[in-house]
Simulated scan of single mutants.
Amino acid sequence: MQILLANPRGFCAGVNMAIDALEKAVAHFGPNIYVYHEIVHNRYVVDRFTAQGVTFVDSVEDVPEESILLFSAHGVSPEIREASRRRKLHTIDATCPLVTKVHMEAIRYAKRGYHILLIGHEGHDEVIGTMGEAPESITLVETPEEVDALAFSEGAKIAVLTQTTLSVDEAGRVLKRLRERFPQLETPSKDDICYATTNRQEAVGILAQKSDLVLVLGSQNSSNSQRLRELGEECGKPAYLIDGASELQPDWFHGVETVLITAGASAPEVVVQEVIDKLVDEYGASLSEETIRTEQVHFPLPKELRGLEVVQR
C-alpha cells in the first residue's frame, strides 16, 4: 500500500492563531476560561482544552459575570458582544481575520443600502455571526434552486458574500446562478473563500485521481473537512471523514493500493500521524508526501493577549 500525504493539509493560519490564543490565555490566566462555542470544529482539540479545565459554552448567560470569555475562530455577532458587555466579561477575540473581513464587508454593503445574499450553510457558527452584523439586510442561500426562488425588483442593489469554508465548486455554482438572475450583482474585490480551504480542495482534486481511497482527518461538524470528503467522492473515490485512527474500518482497504490522506483546516497533525502509523503497522504502507502548494500565512495573536507574560503555575 502507498500513502499519498497531501500538502497543504491541517491547521490554517486562523486555526493556529485561535489555538495559540487559548493556550496563551490558559498559561497566563489559568484554566478557568470560557470559550463561546468550540474554539475550532475539532473534537480532539476541544477535548484537549476541556481536560485542562477550559469550559465551552453555547450561551453567554452560562458565563459567570466578570469572567474571561474567548470568542472562537468562527466569529460572533454584535448581539453576542453586547451580551458579553452587559455581563462585564473580559473578552478575547480570536476570530479568524478572514472571517472578520466578511463581517466588515457585510457592514459596508448594508450601510450603502445593498441587500446581501450570503452563500453558506444554515446553522454554521460563521454564518450565524456574519448574518448578525446586518440581519435585516442579509438572506442566506445554499443552492442554485434557492436562488431561483428569490424575488427582487429590477435594478435592486444586491451584493453577495460567501462563508469562508465552502467548497469552491459548490459556491461557484450558486454564484453563477446569481449572476445569471441578477446581472447587477456586486461582489467583493477579493474572494471570501479562504486560501486554506481553496488550497486543501485543490490538493484533493489533484491527488484523488491517483488514489483508490480518500481519508480526511477532521470532525463531522467541520464544514471545510466535510467539503474535502465530498470532493473525494465527486472524484469517484470512496472517501471517509474520521476523527482518528480508531475509526478506520478494515473493509475500506480491500483491494486498495493507494490511499490519499489529508486533513481539514481544524484537524491537528497528531491525528494524521496516528492514521499513518496504523496503516504502516497493519499494511506495511509506504509514505509519499505530495506538495501541491506551499503556505506561509501567519496571523498575530488577538490584541488582548499581545505582550502578556506567561505565568508559571
Rank of each mutant, 00 (worst) to 15 (best):
A239T: 00
A239E: 00
A239R: 05
A239M: 00
Y240Q: 02
Y240L: 00
L241F: 03
L241M: 03
L241P: 02
L241D: 02
I242W: 02
I242G: 03
I242D: 05
D243I: 08
D243L: 06
D243P: 08
G244Q: 04
A245E: 15
A245P: 12
A245W: 14
A245M: 12
A245T: 09
S246A: 15
S246H: 15
E247R: 08
E247W: 01
L248H: 11
Q249L: 11
Q249G: 07
D251Q: 14
W252Y: 12
W252C: 14
H254W: 09
H254K: 12
G255L: 14
G255S: 14
V256M: 05
V256W: 02
V256T: 08
E257I: 05
E257R: 12
E257Q: 15
T258G: 12
T258S: 13
T258N: 13
T258Q: 14
V259M: 03
V259L: 01
V259G: 06
V259D: 07
L260F: 10
L260G: 08
L260H: 10
L260D: 10
L260M: 09
I261W: 05
T262C: 12
T262F: 10
A263C: 06
A263T: 03
A263S: 05
G264E: 07
G264H: 08
G264M: 08
G264N: 11
A265C: 09
A265D: 01
S266H: 05
S266L: 10
A267M: 06
A267E: 05
P268N: 00
P268V: 00
P268F: 03
E269Y: 07
V270K: 13
V271E: 15
V272E: 11
Q273D: 15
Q273H: 14
Q273T: 15
E274V: 06
E274S: 13
E274T: 08
V275G: 06
I276L: 09
I276C: 03
I276D: 04
D277I: 11
D277Q: 15
K278M: 03
L279I: 01
V280C: 00
D281N: 09
E282T: 14
E282V: 03
Y283L: 11
G284C: 02
G284I: 04
A285T: 02
A285V: 05
A285D: 03
S286M: 14
L287Y: 09
